[in-house]
Design a protein around this nucleic acid. Sequence first.
DNA 1: TCTGGGGTCCTAGGACCC
DNA 2: TCTGGGGTCCTAGGACCC
Length: 401
Amino acid sequence: MFVSSSASILHADLDSFYASVEQRDNPRLRGKPVLVGGGVVLAASYEAKATGVRTPMNLRQARSLCPHAIVVPPRMEAYSEASKAVFDVFHDTTPLVEGLSIDEAFLDVSGLRRISGTPHTIASELRRRVDADVGLAITVGVARTKFLAKVASGVAKPDGLLVVDPEREIEFLRPLPVERLWGVGPKTAERLHAAEIWTVGDVADTKLELLVSLAGVAAGRKVHSLAHNRDPRPVVVGKRRSSIGSQRAIGRGNHTRAEVTTTMFNIIDRVGHRLRASGRVGRTLTMRFRFDDFARATRSHTLSEATNDTAAFARVSEQLLDGMWPTIEKRGITLIGLSIGSLCDADAVQLGLPFDEPAFGDGTALNVALDGVRDRFGSSAIGRAGDVGRDTGLSVPMLPD
DNA sequence: TCTGGGGTCCTAGGACCC
DNA sequence: TCTGGGGTCCTAGGACCC
């Protein structure tokens, strides 16, 4: 794979996204500490963050830290609309956009030097346009790799732009705390600290075997690579969600079976609706429970056919709930969740084997087709799909691993 | 840090197949 | 006849991310 030698990956990250949208839409909130949330803080403006408020802190605690905070309920439709407008600017900048969440994306601008200028120029223009078109501040980190670009945007926040010079990457990397490495959360950080590993430089000076024993095979290898400034991950376009779910916190106390079932059906309804709205079907139903002591448990069941039928999900979830009920009665339950995984496109399933479709031009249809095949017949079937491609002279790209 | 809601990926054991 | 090796799928749990 070709990896550009210049800093040409952008990590663009909207600042305090939900709170910024609220301040944009309501002038009275500008310059003031704003908290978006219901039970907990979903987002805090920089004025509020300055007092020590963090997400997901409960609102009572946040108010005691920041007594003058203005609390507003979340308006998800407004955020999703703002997000779409920002992603329009991204797509206008380069076709190589990989969305990470509602407020964050990687952009590959390596091929644009002659058309749009240096990555620094492109990033400045991107920031200007997001401000002018959408009215929001966005921070951009620019570097040769995804990891460095992401760290750069974190350092540049708020409303900043930072380019990591390829000559000075090691210098930039080594002093960072291990927590900045992707995949190092509280648990792994604690184990690394116990082995006197505090910085990315320390990780780089540690043998792979020790890192694997501390963090596991995959995570150990990952942090080892990142610490040695090896991050070949390309910006990937067209990733799709692999599961859709919903959950509800239901407070402490004795919940009857009827109450729990009602909540569960509401959740199923939501999830089924979202599946149908996005034209997708799934096979694996996973239920999540959280008990009074905050311990968690999951139960899952895989259907023989992918579906988005609410009644089918309801039957399965009742069975899973049956099995879990004695435990729930004993321990008390505070959260119930449900997600549908192993998703694929509803159309692809209806078509059965969609190889007679000539629409393989941009790769999208092929990927959808492969998703459908993998879903119905397992990954081994992809080899046969490849054979079909060779037989028909269609080009069949390698599946990303 | 006493905890919301949306996700992703990894690990590990058992079932099952060739 | 008493037990190999490779692979996939399913399930449950854990860690992590925004």
